[in-house]
Every structure is written in structure tokens, then in C-alpha cells.
């Protein structure tokens, strides 16, 4: 049994990892541990959020994150409502704030938002009474992904502090990386990022990470390797000459795992491109925890929904 965290959750919104304290991160992870057990019961549902309404507002396509939030909401007995970009009034030219104010008029308790532009969740949080959860805003943050990654690492390694974590791929365009760097460095892990120079933002070291220029350098001694998705849909605007060349230089294969720790775990936020950033032999291999990440995503999102739903404007 983990000792009760002394920290109390007082935030109305979860907008990013950057503003969280290590104690708050620990509290979310400990709470998620309790919710994991709910997913293992014959009846995977608790009445905790009965009568609460959660709106899932997805302005960008997402299958995994949206369905993960949806399952988490349903297991907590919340009523949920899904809006996606293609079906919402946004396609008819309504502004984000107008969409949000219309939703507000229906009095939801929590809004989960994904948006192509950084800061969209923050705008909503300022305008609305409902609590806001950032489910990915542009290349800025994706806090629940970082929390589920940390939860998965902690379950395997028992800790975060002192671990060497390599993050490989398109560092420039990844919100997953930003949230993960904030989280892992706050918790005392050593983070190395690697990727083609054209995908490496200038000054990334200022976030407290090391930069490696080859995959081998990043993998050496790593306890955790996180592979990022190459956004194939950006093809033509991509910062690499070819997919084949990318796989040659940064694709993770069994042979390239040689220098890593013996009990290394391989992670990927999904959806993955086999044969681009990761070989099938690794994705399906013994070190891969990629599907576990998906399972843990539900527990972590239940924890976040639970913690946020206890904070009201009056008390915050």
C-alpha cells in the first residue's frame, strides 16, 4: 500500500504538466493505482460521478485518446457527450468561444478538449465555469498522456527518479514530448532526446534534457525508450528526405536495442507506424509495454476526472 499523499488536489483544470508540482503528479499516479482495480472487476463501473456531465470536445481527430476518456467517464458513471470537429458547428464557422459558451449553457461539469492550436484549452478555462482537461493542444501539451506514461514507467520500475529515459523522433512537433519532459524532469529522471536535426527545436536543452544526435547515443544505458510517431499525414511538408532513410537512422530495431539496460521498456504513444519509427519485432517484442500504456490510460484519466470533479469554483 502506498502511503496517502499529503497533497490535496485544488485545481479546477488540468491544462498542462508544466504548472504541476511533483506532489500533485504523485497524487494523480497514486489515485490511478486505485482505479486500475476498478478495471479488473466483473462490473467495471463505480457510481462516483453519477449526475455529472462531461463533454468531449475534439477539434482534431483522435481515436485512442477520445475513446480512453469515454471509457473512463463511463466507468465513473458520468454522462458524456461527444463533439468532433467534422460534426460540430465549428465546421459551420462558429468560433471556439461561441461553441464553448453554447456548451456552457447546457451546464456541463467538465470539458475535455483537443485542439490544433496551443492555448485553446486555456482560453476555455478562462471563459467557462466547467473544469477543463487538455487532451492535446497543438504542439504544446498533452498532460494525460505524460501521466499515463509515467504511471506505466512507475509500475515497471517502481520509481521515476534516477531513470534514464530516451525520447526519439519528431521532437519539434510533439506535444507528448513537451509534457513528458516537464513531468520526467520534475520527478528526477534524466531525459535524452534524439531525432533528425530538422525535427529538433533549437534550445530544447533549456528544458533540462540532453540532446543526442544518433539513436545509438540515446539508447545507451536507457531504462525507458519512448518512440514518437512520425506524422505521415504531414508528408510533403516533412522535415526528412524519406521515410526509408528515417527508419535507417532512427527506426528502433532489435539490433539497435543492444546498448540499453537489460530490463529496458519500449513505449509509444500511438498510433504507431510499423517500419517507420519502430520495427514490428520491437513493437511486439518482450520489452514492449505499448498496449499496457493504453490500459493504464483509462486508469489515469479516471483519476484525473475524479480529482477535478471534486473542485468547484467556490472552493478553488
Amino acid at each position: 500500500m502506498t502511503a496517502a499523499s499529503p497533497v490535496r488536489w485544488t485545481r479546477e483544470d488540468l491544462l498542462g504538466i508544466a504548472e504541476l508540482s511533483p506532489g500533485e503528479i504523485e497524487l494523480v499516479l497514486d489515485t490511478a493505482e486505485s482505479f486500475r482495480e476498478v478495471g479488473e472487476r466483473p462490473i467495471k463501473k463505480v457510481p462516483t460521478l453519477r449526475g455529472k456531465t462531461v463533454v468531449n470536445l475534439f477539434f482534431e481527430s483522435s481515436t485512442r485518446t477520445r475513446s480512453s476518456f469515454e471509457i473512463a467517464e463511463k466507468r465513473l458513471s458520468a454522462d458524456n457527450l461527444n463533439f468532433s470537429a467534422s460534426s460540430s458547428a465549428l465546421a459551420k464557422g462558429e468560433s471556439l468561444v461561441d461553441t464553448a459558451l453554447n456548451l456552457q449553457a447546457m451546464a456541463p461539469d467538465l470539458i475535455v478538449i483537443r485542439h490544433a492550436h496551443a492555448g485553446a484549452p486555456h482560453l476555455l478555462a478562462r471563459k467557462l465555469k466547467a473544469g477543463v482537461i487538455n487532451a492535446g493542444d497543438g504542439a504544446h501539451e498533452h498532460p494525460t498522456q505524460a501521466l499515463l506514461d509515467a504511471y506505466t514507467i512507475r509500475r515497471h520500475k517502481g520509481r521515476l527518479a534516477g531513470l534514464k529515459v530516451a525520447i526519439v523522433g519528431d521532437i519539434e512537433h510533439s506535444r507528448v514530448v513537451r509534457s513528458n519532459i516537464h513531468l520526467l524532469t520534475k520527478m528526477g529522471a534524466r531525459v535524452t532526446v534524439a531525432g533528425p536535426r530538422t525535427m529538433m527545436p533549437v534550445g530544447i536543452e533549456r528544458l533540462g534534457v540532453e540532446v543526442a544526435h544518433t539513436l545509438a547515443e540515446a539508447v545507451r544505458g536507457a531504462d525507458v525508450i519512448m518512440m514518437l510517431r512520425i506524422q505521415l499525414e504531414r508528408q510533403g511538408r516533412m522535415a526528412i528526405p524519406s521515410i526509408k532513410e528515417y527508419f535507417e537512422l532512427f527506426g528502433l530495431t532489435s539490433a539497435r536495442l543492444a546498448g540499453a539496460a537489460d530490463d529496458v521498456i519500449i513505449m509509444h504513444p500511438g498510433p504507431m507506424n510499423r517500419g517507420v519509427e519502430i520495427a514490428s519485432e520491437v513493437a511486439d517484442g518482450p520489452y514492449s509495454v505499448i498496449l499496457e500504456q493504453v490500459t493504464h490510460g483509462v486508469s489515469v484519466r479516471m483519476a484525473v476526472l475524479y480529482l477535478l470533479s471534486g473542485v468547484h469554483e467556490e472552493t478553488a
Binding site: 496517502a4 489515485t31 486505485s34 457510481p47 462516483t48 470533479s309 472552493t315
Partner: peptide
């Protein structure tokens, strides 16, 4: 048994109680 998730007064407490789990 941890009954936290089944309480009828969750909306009345200031911050959510810590959930310790059922076994």
C-alpha cells in the same frame, strides 16, 4: 473495502478523499 467511490457526499467535501482501493 474502500467505499470512497460510493459515497453520497462527494460533492459536499472540499477536495476529493484519497482512494486506497479494494481487495
Amino acid at each position: 473495502l474502500d467505499i470512497t467511490l460510493y459515497r453520497d457526499d462527494l460533492s459536499m467535501v472540499a477536495a476529493q478523499p484519497v482512494v486506497k482501493g479494494t481487495h
